[in-house]
Design a protein around this nucleic acid. Sequence first.
DNA 1: CTGAAAGCGCTTACAG
DNA 2: CTGAAAGCGCTTACAG
Lengths: 318, 318
Amino acid sequence: MSRVFNTPEIVSPGTRRHVLDMAAEVGYLPNESARTLATKKSNMVGLVWDTDHRRPGWRHPFLQDILVALKSALSAQGLHLLMLAPDRGAGPDSRQRFLRAVQRHNVDGVVIIDNGSRDPAVLALVDAEVPCVALDLRFTGPTCTSITSDNAGGGRLAAQHLIDRGHHRIATITGPPETWPAAERLAGFRAALTEAGQPLADADIASGDWYLDSGYAAMKRLLPRSPTAVFAAGDEMAVGAMRAIHEAGLRIPGDIAIIGFDDIEVAALVPPGLTTVAQDKTGIGTAAAEAIVAMLLGSPAPAEPTTLPTALITRGST
Amino acid sequence: MSRVFNTPEIVSPGTRRHVLDMAAEVGYLPNESARTLATKKSNMVGLVWDTDHRRPGWRHPFLQDILVALKSALSAQGLHLLMLAPDRGAGPDSRQRFLRAVQRHNVDGVVIIDNGSRDPAVLALVDAEVPCVALDLRFTGPTCTSITSDNAGGGRLAAQHLIDRGHHRIATITGPPETWPAAERLAGFRAALTEAGQPLADADIASGDWYLDSGYAAMKRLLPRSPTAVFAAGDEMAVGAMRAIHEAGLRIPGDIAIIGFDDIEVAALVPPGLTTVAQDKTGIGTAAAEAIVAMLLGSPAPAEPTTLPTALITRGST
DNA sequence: CTGAAAGCGCTTACAG
DNA sequence: CTGAAAGCGCTTACAG
């Protein structure tokens, strides 16, 4: 009887022992499909990873760290992670491709690691009131919450560091402006500079798409302004910018100092070492797991995003 | 009736239309749990990722590329990827922790991305004749096959390249010797050198654990032999070795040339650019998906591993 | 070709 | 506390 496993306090010690012994002897394993069919809960958390068909998945280098932490924390709760394949079932409504997959599998909740665009198929999950936690995406709803780094605070850290180093001609390379993290990092950076009495000129702002080449291109646009320091809102772009600086015959940090954001592996490896604002990747993954678990247990979705602290890591580039 | 969906050729066009219309109108979605319960097939492929509790998941940088390719190829077949949380259910038999998870969820097949150790819990899957494909692990069995790069061929490419560059004092940093890829890379490298009439001395071999620090340490051990070229069997270790070379006041490639293996992102970024033997990460992920799909369709497990070609990428370090 | 029924292995009221 | 039954939503022989 399933009572022995699910509500042992309700069954007498004698029968309990007996049933347990039998189960152990036969090597009884409960069948999850049958359980799911009966209860409508699957003990599976869905993962929406890539949304964009043009790009083969979001390949931000620290995604793997987040994923590992997320998986570990979920495992500890006995939850499995199901990487959702978009359901292209009958019905032309591609907005529902994730929702359909979720419903068919009775997935309990969803973690969204998306590329920053507000994909309608993701919004459909929110509308359907599937419990979900989004990473680096500002989603709210009765069943949705967000996890993100303290991007504004990180932007301030970067600004303060450059100010402390005595820089006055400061420029920045931002991520895609419509993106939440990009907007926050810029806002924090700009606020700190303004407070320090050296507001950021629009001409000293160039934007990229997070990837290396865009940092290279953005830096080329910034070079004519001859900044003495630049804050790139992502390490990949920072590395691209460093290349542009070198190609211009300038030295780092002598002629131009540069600070990044993320602290991905290459930051430590590219000479002279990239100073950067580190994100707590493991913390993000763990927080995502905790958030989804709490919601599955009945807690309401926090209206405010959960924010993880960032930290300045000083290396040779500043 | 499920016949309309599963064996449409067996039902008359009239009723088929009718049923389809009704289904579309109601927004009918088949329930996977019920289907799984009835058929014992779940349309889910399990992923065994980390086995080792000491290390939070295998963090080889190109794992993400493989995972993305694997997921995409599986998605195209309508298969979902379930990241298996080790089942620590009743029974002290931890050897069965993955097998139990597989059985409880009726997972159709398993892809194993493991850290190279022959984990008993993974072997239990093989013994239970669960269809599985292992990446970079030499597993065989009636239902098991392996996917890997042509590591021996890649080792030969590296050797040939150094020979072509006119080197005579050649050393190598290997991966963990008990590991299949490490053994193959060394074997290919050594064979090519021998054929070229300059066999590798044991003293010119140092081994690491794939990670950066071990490459640094290995290089320090090799330095007294004053090689003019070294082949590091993994890019991470190569980057560590480059650091040791620089610290010794030597120049790359002037004093020592270095060639790596993998072609991870940093290879292109670390100056002067790391020459390396590239693995086809996307190909590996895709091949893994194809292999598991073929087995699910009834094909026998190929006894020989599926081998993907490697390619020499020349950069500044040689 | 097409109904109606049994069965997949659980959980959960419902009687004892 | 503890049986026995119904029901979760499919698939698959089995009769028509």
